[in-house]
Design a protein around this nucleic acid. Structure first.
Lengths: 231, 231
DNA sequence: AACTTATGTATTGTCGACAACCAACAGTAT
DNA sequence: ATACTGTTGGTTGTCGACAATACATAAGTT
């Protein structure tokens, strides 16, 4: 009876340990980030520590740390002794964000082609996009789009690239949330992705890079003026 | 009238109104960053808030915030309720850092060529490198090298790229400080740069990109094992 | 009226103390 | 000996109060 059960006795076997103890600053940061990305906190809104602390029923310390996290995300800026606010976007920054995204994704494509890793996982996201486009579901399409590109970067197997891309994508996300939705042709967006997957599978480097570049540039070319306001 | 002047004298008058108005967290962060980059705080060193607060004669709050800044710089990592330490480097991360640097610098070169902006400013850094190499001054060469690449990125006129490059270069700097100095041929490093400037001035895109790529890859190819230790 | 000087107000910056938490150790019963 | 169970030491997490700062505004002066 093999009493010698491997008995992998890790330091502690909590059968019911999944209750994670998330620090307040993380919870607050997540909440604020969501509020900013959803537009609930518009660009330029001022964030007052005391007010937020009162609203969220915590002290100012975790609020401060949460805001610092968002500052590192590039979503908030602080002016010493004056105030903190949701960082406004300039037209220039929008363009810059997309041009950086382009080189990240091109790098990912190159690495994927070199490593010859299979890219099957991308198909399902394409399918989801197609379905979302058919249903005219903007939210679902956006989510599937992000999942596709996230998976693309993940396949590149490069942790620093992933970290940089994630950080950048926060702004892209913000930009897309603000843009007038009518500007995007949902069907077109969905149709853009499968050729990329096919080029990867065919190991056609030139085509894959060209497609991913075009894809990014099309998004960048959308009218950015709707994003910028006066501050 | 109202001789009832509140009398409330100003809370306090500093007869020595110093000009420095820098928040403590910034001073602390700068100091710690310097200590880490110089190797005074080796990889894996644990950072205890209370200890640092005691040593630097400030409370834990600014220490915490400073450490958070360094965490965003990627120099420190926190393990909840356990401790904070200088983030160790893996061989893999070293390679990743250089490969990212490559695409940043290639992007900068491309933008400079497209904008046809003059690159005269790069010459002086080349001269400084040559002089430093001749004098066998490692510190000066490193500084001039950083100044050269910083200027290159600046000429690309892309604020997000600059921010990303700066953040990445912190790690590069760390890596270079740790590497055995004998591994670098000072004269060779100095000689690598002028051709890049010439290619830019000649508007030779292919050559410029090839040179900057090679330059980065040579650095990346140095033996990384000297960096990694056990943790 | 124009200019300078106080002073009030809103906000961030810093502090010291206490609570929560984890890891390792010691002690006890089996 | 082995497994379980306090307990303790060290570290981060959170809190409420006070100090410092900048800006706007009112008061006073010429």
């Amino acid at each position: 009876m093999t009493p010698t059960v491997p008995s992998r006795a890790p330091p502690h076997q909590n059968d019911i340990p999944p209750i994670e103890n998330v620090p307040l600053r993380i919870q607050v940061a997540d909440r604020l980030r969501k509020a900013i990305l959803s537009g609930k906190l518009p660009l330029g809104s001022s964030l007052v520590e005391a007010t937020l602390a009162d609203q969220l029923n915590v002290s100012r310390a975790p609020i401060r740390e949460a805001i610092q996290i968002l500052e590192n995300d590039g979503l908030v800026e602080t002016i010493a002794y004056k105030g903190k606010r949701v960082k406004p976007l300039t037209i220039r920054e929008v363009g810059e964000a997309y041009s950086l995204r382009e080189i990240y994704e091109v790098m990912a494509v190159k690495r994927i082609l070199e490593s010859r890793i299979p890219v099957d996982l991308l198909h399902q996201h394409c399918d989801q996009m197609t379905a979302a486009a058919k249903a005219d579901d903007f939210e679902a399409l956006t989510a599937a789009d992000e999942a596709f590109h996230h998976e693309l970067i993940r396949l590149a197997d490069h942790s620093l690239l992933m970290a940089s891309w994630k950080n950048l994508y926060l702004r892209i996300h913000q930009i897309m949330a603000i843009r007038n939705r009518e500007q995007r042709n949902l069907t077109q967006v969905a149709k853009n992705h499968p050729p990329i997957v096919h080029a990867l599978e065919a190991n056609d480097a030139n085509l894959a890079i060209e497609l991913i570049t075009d894809h990014t540039r099309i998004l960048a070319a959308l009218d950015p003026t709707s994003i910028v306001k006066e501050f």
